[in-house]
């Protein structure tokens, strides 16, 4: 008998569909009030995971537990799970109020209580004035808030967010991030946030679970993943511009992040400038070296030496097996 911690626990969760393994033995724990981001490229299994937790698709193997209680075979409606969809999934034929009300009505919540709970949530999200609008009459940001309101109205035991901001423009996304955190995280419910955007993941989540090909690559705080990646995939997926990988002897690769390279007049690598991207406070240099092309991020003020050479600190070196991509000791 294993002892279960409070919160959400996924044990060896797998899903197979038509012979394809969409998710392969995922183990993950999310503490109450913790926000874990599922990050990865499209098709990595992150949305699959979310649908398994919600009960929208059946798991082939493994279990979903909440506070030690096995939810795996429960119908989605019985799980007290709230989910914000990428498309928001607002019922287009119902007003904002109708969207919020339908679930409560179906569960037989009395009219007075419905009214009170809807008022409260509309207040919280400052949506009161939009009460009678249809989804088509709302902006993207407003729709997202309505979807959020509908999710929170359930008083859910788990909150799931599936790329909730990918349909919003970049500026709005940045503005909404702290608000989302304020509303969702730090309460009693575990929160899972699916995204393919690492910036969003690092900005929103307490911990990141990075998935690829249906398998969990690494889970940890954003900083852990960045500083101490478990393998080459994690190292190259996190951090922009992407890490430089230099082929070395004994079928090894040396990973060096662009921000860790130092431009000077001495160092082990000679380089030649190909192109310069100016980023305001920083500049990205595209260099050609004996070991292949390199990216280097430096301050916008840095000057280019006549015979540029590259150096770095030992502690920034990340070593990988060139074939398997596994992390190696330096």
């Amino acid at each position: 008998m294993t002892i279960t911690a409070p919160g959400l626990e996924l044990r060896q969760l797998s899903r197979e569909l038509e012979g394809r393994r969409l998710l392969d033995g995922l183990d993950l724990q999310v503490a109450p009030g913790e926000c874990v981001a599922l990050l990865g490229p499209s098709g990595c299994g992150k949305s699959t995971t979310l649908r398994l937790v919600a009960g929208l698709d059946p798991a082939s193997e493994g279990n979903v537990l909440l506070d030690g209680e096995d939810l795996t075979l429960r119908e989605p409606g019985e799980r007290q799970v709230a989910m914000v969809f990428q498309s928001y999934a607002l019922y287009p034929h119902l007003s904002v109020q109708g969207n919020l009300e339908l679930g409560l009505k179906v569960r037989g919540v009395p009219a007075a209580e419905r009214r009170q709970r809807i008022d409260a949530i509309l207040d919280l999200l400052q949506l009161g004035s939009l009460r009678h609008r249809r989804p088509a009459q709302l902006s993207g940001g407003q729709r997202q808030r309505v979807a959020l309101a509908r999710a929170l109205l359930r008083q859910p035991r788990i909150v799931l967010l599936d790329e909730p901001m990918s349909n919003l423009d970049a500026q709005l996304r940045e503005e909404l991030r702290p608000e989302l955190r304020r509303l969702l995280c730090g309460g009693e419910q575990p929160v899972i946030y699916v995204t393919h955007d690492q910036q969003e993941a690092t900005g929103m989540a307490d911990r990141i679970a990075l998935l690829e090909g249906g398998r969990l690559q690494q889970v940890g705080t954003p900083r852990e993943l960045y500083e101490n990646p478990a393998n080459r995939f994690v190292a190259s997926f996190l951090g922009r511009p992407a890490i430089n990988l230099l082929p070395m002897a004994h079928r090894r690769q040396l990973g060096l992040r662009p921000e860790h390279l130092i431009l000077g007049e001495e160092g082990p690598l000679a380089a030649r400038l190909l192109r310069r991207e100016w980023w305001g406070h920083q500049q990205l240099l595209w260099l050609e070296s004996d070991q292949g092309p390199l990216r280097l991020l430096t301050s916008a003020a840095a000057a280019m030496p006549p015979q540029p050479r590259l150096s770095w600190q030992r502690r920034h070196e990340l070593w990988f097996d060139a074939d398997s991509g596994a992390r190696l000791a330096p």
């Binding site: 649908r51 919600a54 009960g55 929208l56 119908e75 989605p76 409606g77 019985e78 799980r79 799970v81 709230a82 989910m83 969809f85 990428q86 498309s87 999934a89 019922y91 339908l102 679930g103 179906v106 569960r107 509908r150 359930r154």
Partner: peptide, 10 residues
């Protein structure tokens, strides 16, 4: 997703 949302609401 519309039907999924409705299923989640029970």
């Amino acid at each position: 997703e519309l039907e999924d949302a409705a299923r989640l609401e029970g």
